[in-house]
Design a protein around this nucleic acid. Sequence first.
DNA 1: ACCTGGCTATGACCGTCGTCATAGTAGCGG
DNA 2: CCGCTACTATGACGACGGTCATAGCCAGGT
Lengths: 197, 197
Amino acid sequence: MADSGHGPRERMVFSAAQLIRREGVAATGMRDVAAHAGAPRGSLQHYFPGGKEQLVNEAVGWAGRYAGKRVARFLAGLDEPTPSGLFAAMAAQWTDEYRRDGFAAGCPVAAATVECAAAGTSTREAVAAAFATWRGPVAEALTGMGVPAARADSLATLMISTLEGAVLMARAEQDVRPLTTAVRELGPLLDAAVAPS
Amino acid sequence: MADSGHGPRERMVFSAAQLIRREGVAATGMRDVAAHAGAPRGSLQHYFPGGKEQLVNEAVGWAGRYAGKRVARFLAGLDEPTPSGLFAAMAAQWTDEYRRDGFAAGCPVAAATVECAAAGTSTREAVAAAFATWRGPVAEALTGMGVPAARADSLATLMISTLEGAVLMARAEQDVRPLTTAVRELGPLLDAAVAPS
DNA sequence: ACCTGGCTATGACCGTCGTCATAGTAGCGG
DNA sequence: CCGCTACTATGACGACGGTCATAGCCAGGT
């Protein structure tokens, strides 16, 4: 689909993330990744001598950086920045995709967590790092809106975990309602944190 | 471990749920399930002629019913029932397990959702049903505490999605902090819904 | 012309997994 | 003892997946 990366290596990482999003880690084969990226199969072992584990870890890392960068864009797109506005924008990315393309895909970091948390140590560290590089910008944005530093990190964690759970339930029920519910119910709580107590 | 079911069939469903919780659906083999249940391999095709898909679906259904029944127990264990108390009890089940046994296991329904939402239709319906049989008792408990019926379902959805996301992040970070944070931040919001506005 | 090194291209190996086929055992009514 | 049914026991099959091995390109340098 989208070449999305200049080199073939980046395309493979991107394709891996896309396939993991849909089918999960175990169901995503190396051959599938190469085919989806339009890359030769032989390039896999050349660019990723660490095998599938390395590829998955890089895909997870890419997803984490992508999510972190999106936060900055969401902030720029808000006419007046509020915590609830940021959260709504984060959720809207999912509702838009689900309404447009169906509920085929979820979060690749969540998939890697579910399937690899008990097994490989390196992948577990990769998902932890991905969540950290996602939570950082969110917490930073919250402090920039006037949320006390002590609570900003907690609220960022809450936003991300609620969003992940809502994405999960939305896929299960094939309905965006969990996402819209989360935005509606959580919004006031988030905005109430801007004025220092 | 726990025989936990009278018949061998129930033991296999239970074992399947346990293994899916830890390793995911794809990484859980039929042979592993039989071994974990202490059941003969041949019993699998006898009790589950629908193959792995049927076994997974039943494991997911079992998990949903289990979660639904737990809600009643949590209610009974609260000296005075409040929404935040219920949510804290639901989260405590996870924090207790994680502190006691480590972060090896997650929610089997979440695992099945992540790995099967795009593929099999029957499993997707099974996870949707599981979430429904979980959300029902929670919403019912909320109305019993004085939450308006209109909001009870929304709050139940919010509680479950936040809990699922927090479980996910807790496993990723090997830290119960996401769970405790969710309880602390979400509690006041939930209790604020008891008095009709 | 020749070597080097980044990359591509395939085929093969080996393990695993879900499933099927077939045979065996245990209990039981008659 | 027979026949029936429920369940157990194992071996085999076919498919697939990750990885390794080997060989083929095709620059660019000298």
